[in-house]
Write a protein that binds this DNA or RNA. Sequence first.
DNA 1: TCTATTTCGATGTATATACAATTAATGTAT
DNA 2: ATACATTAATTGTATATACATCGAAATAGA
Lengths: 149, 149
Amino acid sequence: MKIEDEIRQKPFKDAYSKAVVNLLYTHSYLVTEQSKIFKPHDLSPEQYNVLRILRGQHPEPITVSSIQDRMLNKMSNASRLVEKLKIKKMVERKECAVDRRQVDITITGKGLEILEQLEEEVKKSNKNILNLTKSEVAQLNDLLDKLRG
Amino acid sequence: MKIEDEIRQKPFKDAYSKAVVNLLYTHSYLVTEQSKIFKPHDLSPEQYNVLRILRGQHPEPITVSSIQDRMLNKMSNASRLVEKLKIKKMVERKECAVDRRQVDITITGKGLEILEQLEEEVKKSNKNILNLTKSEVAQLNDLLDKLRG
DNA sequence: TCTATTTCGATGTATATACAATTAATGTAT
DNA sequence: ATACATTAATTGTATATACATCGAAATAGA
């Protein structure tokens, strides 16, 4: 549905402003849909993302600031998200021997298991969430990559 | 830049999953840029959006639930955002005479002034934020409108 | 070496999002 | 008319985002 109808607004005069609003609105739609999957596993979308980052390095550990670097939201707080995951026994923290300021984070077996369980479900969900053809999705990716300049 | 490079990840196997991540990442980029404009006026992006909704009805009032309906994030909390704006004297609240459960919200002169001041700046910023041509922006809008099904 | 600066992570605070519960007012059904 | 259900808004709680500050450790430079 057109964004103007969904938020009951008069048509935008400016396509750029419309696109900004459209992106914000679509984000909200995405997160709502995603949460339905993660909620039953006691994970937030952000915690899921951190687990994926850790799996990408496994079995090597990765520091908190490296996690921060790779997070989707650079203004988020890796330290606190890691703490939440540690409480759930999905990650381990170990002081880095080389540099005692740093903390090495590793995903646990439990963390890997949960990702494994979610793998197919997330993939299916991502496909269902986006009501687009393969070539449209490719177009969208290109536009988003260009958009950020 | 390609999303994989920005978040230092290996290439996505699945274009749909890539698009979801791309949208989340782009959202964070947008909000960061937008906040730079709103911050000096002591407004958050969400508060700005509520003010715009109110201006759309002005001089008619609008109820809290109608605001909620039109908000970009349906899970947000119009009641609390209105309260914040009221403290800043940008909106007024009045009990609805017809239905005493409802609360009529109106934007004040001060609220309108601030929107007026921001108008051009926001428009320019929206154009600068999106590194796309006119036809690409139109494409993006079409894709997003279709995406949500 | 000694000092100054930078880096890393943790922490504090304000705002917003997500969702549940509550309260008051209204509407509906018998 | 009374009981029951629904609606509107507020409030409570947990998580996340945004940004500033802090302390410990490492690094750079005189």
